[in-house]
């Protein structure tokens, strides 16, 4: 170390005797406030702790907020309307895949599949999945009378022509009130 210092001094004397002399006379024109170096390590550590404290305080908030948002989103999906919508999407995707996948099984006849189900199986399915059914549709179904149901079954088989013939034939027997109901 002394060797390096000597080398530096000799080098400087060779380059600039003036600067070499100044260096010998007084090296340090700057000063620091009293006690500065004694308190600096504590000041730095205090700053580090303060900054880490801020990070720690913020971190749980961020984690909580993130969890809350995720939880709320998950809960929203459990709401009947979203659950039904989601279930519908899943059913549609599955049906699409089932129907259009080139290497998939042969297309099944939906009516045949439904027909193969027994009344007991249908009832059991409805009981087990009652929460997934649209409340509005269930209310409508509950309010429909037996006659309505029968009409629903019959009506699709009647064409415009048959309906006009029926009306022409029985027009006199139909009361104005019943006609308004039909229209």
């Amino acid at each position: 170390m002394m060797k390096e210092k000597d080398h530096i001094r000799e080098e400087l004397e060779g380059l600039s005797p003036l600067l070499a002399k100044m260096k010998e006379d007084k090296q340090q024109p700057f000063r620091v406030p009293a006690g500065y170096f004694q308190s600096l390590p504590d000041d730095v550590l205090r700053r580090i702790r303060a900054e880490e404290g801020l990070v720690r305080e913020k971190a749980p908030e961020i984690r909580t907020a993130w969890r809350e948002r995720l939880g709320k989103a998950f809960q929203a999906f459990l709401q009947p309307r979203y659950a039904i919508a989601l279930a519908s999407v899943v059913v549609l995707v599955a049906a699409g895949w089932y129907l259009f996948w080139p290497a998939g099984p042969a297309m099944a006849e939906p009516s045949a599949t439904l027909a193969s189900l027994s009344q007991e199986e249908i009832t059991e399915y409805i009981t087990n999945n009652i929460e997934s059914f649209d409340i509005g549709l269930m209310v409508e179904a509950a309010m429909a009378s037996e006659e309505d149901v029968r009409n629903i079954e019959v009506m699709p088989n009647i064409g415009d022509k048959e309906l006009n013939e029926y009306l022409d034939e029985y027009i006199d027997e139909i009361s104005l009130e019943d006609l308004e109901k039909l229209l």
Partner: peptide, 26 residues
């Protein structure tokens, strides 16, 4: 400190730079 002080001249500036330097080291 002296290395930084000779660069930035002002004590307060040197103090800030040195503290930032130590925090980076930490």
């Amino acid at each position: 400190y002296w290395h930084i002080r000779r660069m930035v001249i002002d004590h307060e500036d040197a103090n800030d730079v040195l503290q930032n330097c130590f925090i980076k080291v930490y």
